[in-house]
């Protein structure tokens, strides 16, 4: 009882100090974050986790990352999100930021290809049953959706609007694929590498859609960001990406 009482009174008498202490702690954590902040296309997520992990082991840097549809991250950057490096799954969003003077330096990176998922005999005459769904990434923001629509148009596939489910980016498309919510889908071939389920996959001919090139944009030029971008171009890192199904030129 006595201990209980004294503890209470210590807290009660010193509550201002305790609150003050919390504030100091809070601001300390804010100040200490001078790391590299990377925003990248969600299709890179599985590979990036590995790459970032390796990089943190061999350098003293701590990396923070945000992922999403490339267009989505570009929008965040336009609204002053504090990313230092941005990796987009197309040139469009790097160009967009470049036009608004947000990009200090840019370089092309790896490539990817598209695959179609679903039980189809041939790509030419695909017909969906009434309650079947075709999942695509949202073409507005996700480059994957844009490439997918190109391929759909090139193949002349007729899909009724209300059978299409647009998901916000490649990663969320992959999640819904993994829980079997999509009967058909077009996704990056690299995503299928990470899919644990057995699915019917057919890779789409490269002439059906434009080149899928990932591009790196540096938003804040300093030694840390340059080091990391150089690291991204090293053979060991490219090897990891190759293992994840990306195409290394």
């Amino acid at each position: 009882m006595i201990i209980h009482y004294s503890l209470n009174s210590i807290i009660f008498k010193n509550y201002l100090k305790i609150i003050f202490g919390f504030f100091i702690f809070f601001f300390q954590t804010l100040k200490a974050n001078e790391n590299i902040y990377i925003g990248y296309a969600s299709s890179l997520h599985n590979a990036m986790k590995e790459i970032v992990n390796d990089y943190e082991k061999q350098s003293n840097e701590r990396l923070k990352f945000g992922m999403g549809a490339s267009g989505n991250i570009a929008q965040q950057i336009m609204r002053d999100a504090p990313y230092d490096i941005f990796i987009s799954a197309n040139k469009k969003w790097i160009n967009y930021l470049d036009k608004h003077q947000k990009i200090k330096e840019r370089q092309p990176w790896i490539s990817n290809s598209l695959s179609m998922i679903g039980s189809m005999k041939s790509l030419e005459n695909l017909t969906l049953n009434d309650n079947e769904r075709f999942c695509l990434a949202d073409p507005k923001n996700a480059p994957l959706g844009f490439y997918s629509l190109e391929a759909i148009n090139a193949m002349n596939l007729k899909i009724v609007d209300n059978q299409i489910i647009f998901l916000k980016d490649a990663a969320s498309l992959q999640y819904y694929l993994s829980i079997d919510e999509c009967d058909y889908a077009i996704t990056y071939s690299s995503n299928i590498f990470n899919l644990e389920k057995n699915v019917d996959v057919q890779s789409l001919p490269l002439n059906l859609y434009s080149d899928i090139t990932y591009e790196i944009g540096i938003l804040k030029l300093n030694k840390d960001t340059k080091d990391f971008v150089n690291y991204l171009q090293q053979p060991s890192v490219l090897g990891i990406l190759k293992n994840h199904g990306f195409i290394i030129d």
Partner: peptide
């Protein structure tokens, strides 16, 4: 959801 979608569109 419509507001969210439009927020993504420049």
């Amino acid at each position: 959801l419509a507001i969210y979608s439009s927020l993504q569109d420049p």
